[in-house]
């Protein structure tokens, strides 16, 4: 099956001369949750803008379910729901009207049942006759999601969906996204909260300075690029790392009561055996040890700072 979105060699140079995207190619698979990660200004929003028709690309092509976004823009856009990063709502409209407007705009006949369902899923149903003006920030964010879902899209773009959203609401939004995904909607979310990508995504793409740095299955990415840490709880406190252990990448932690050894889990030789041998020769005894897989955040920082 062909990818639901196919981005090929897309570039974007703004009039100011800023190159926001530099030859980006990316395939989004049908039915997946894809997280696009990158620091501020990496080009995430620009890329989404191009796919959705808000930004004109300087070069390259994009196809949505086989429909080119240029000539065949109606078919392409009909499939997409977009929730942009900035809160932008029609202040004086009611929740119900603004969501119904979105459905009409996409050319669909009115469906009070569908609108009611979307509002219910987003816990907005009892506020349906409220003016958006009177809603809290978190509710406005949900109104924007409701608008994007009004036309029953197959693809949902969420640009920083949980920026400025409290923890509880974030969790309920994640649940909603999972539900949508389970019903067959392909989800593309951008975030700079690693936690969010780690929690939600099946695949992760990292973008930095307008280029895709890596696209990988989440677990694979963590496994491949993951560094592991071995933590040794010492019997006796150390003031400094003894001389005989200089060759190992060691750090002292917990006020000298822990030694932390960082290694690459994918390399053939992790160096653990020789470390343990050197430790015993230096007379350093430990009472416990544990290993930890580094988080996506560590990987991300590593990738971005390499560039």
């Amino acid at each position: 099956m062909h990818p639901i979105i196919s981005v090929s060699n897309v570039t974007k140079k703004y009039a100011s001369g800023l190159v926001a995207l530099n030859g980006v190619s990316l395939d989004i698979e049908r039915g997946e949750i894809f997280a696009l990660l990158g620091p501020n200004g990496a080009g995430k929003t620009t890329l989404i803008g191009i796919i959705c028709g808000i930004v004109n690309a300087s070069g390259g092509t994009v196809a949505v379910d086989g429909h080119g976004i240029g000539k065949d823009y109606r078919a392409a856009r009909s499939l997409i729901g977009l929730v942009p990063q900035e809160l932008a709502t029609d202040t004086f409209e009611t929740v119900w009207n603004t969501v119904s407007f979105s459905r009409g705009l996409f050319g669909l006949p009115p469906s009070p049942a569908h609108i009611a369902k979307v509002l219910k899923d987003l816990s907005l149903l009892d506020r349906r006759n409220s003016k958006i003006l009177t809603l809290s920030g978190g509710m406005k964010r949900r109104v924007m999601i409701a608008k994007a879902l009004a036309h029953e899209p197959q693809i949902l773009f969420l640009d920083e969906p949980t920026a400025g959203v409290d923890v509880e609401l974030r969790k309920s939004m994640w649940d909603l996204i999972r539900q949508l995904n389970a019903s067959g909607v392909t989800i593309i979310l951008t975030t700079h909260y690693i936690e969010e990508a780690e929690e939600m995504a099946g695949r992760i793409g990292v973008i930095n300075k307008g280029e895709i740095v890596v696209v990988e299955e989440k677990a694979e990415l963590i496994r491949k690029l993951g560094r592991k840490q071995l933590t040794l709880d010492l019997q006796k406190r150390l003031d400094a790392i003894p001389e005989g252990l200089d060759g190992h990448p060691l750090a002292l932690a917990a006020d000298g009561r822990q030694l932390i050894y960082t290694y690459d889990s994918k390399s053939e030789r992790t160096g653990i055996a020789s470390l343990l041998k050197d430790l015993s020769e230096a007379g350093i005894r430990f009472k416990d040890l544990s290993t930890q897989q580094s988080s996506l955040e560590d990987i991300f920082v590593g990738l971005v700072s390499q560039k």
């Binding site: 109606r74 942009p84 809160l87 932008a88 705009l105 996409f106």
Partner: peptide, 10 residues
């Protein structure tokens, strides 16, 4: 900023 919706609609 609500113009995004018009621009991204078919």
């Amino acid at each position: 900023g609500t113009v995004y919706e018009i621009l991204s609609a078919p």
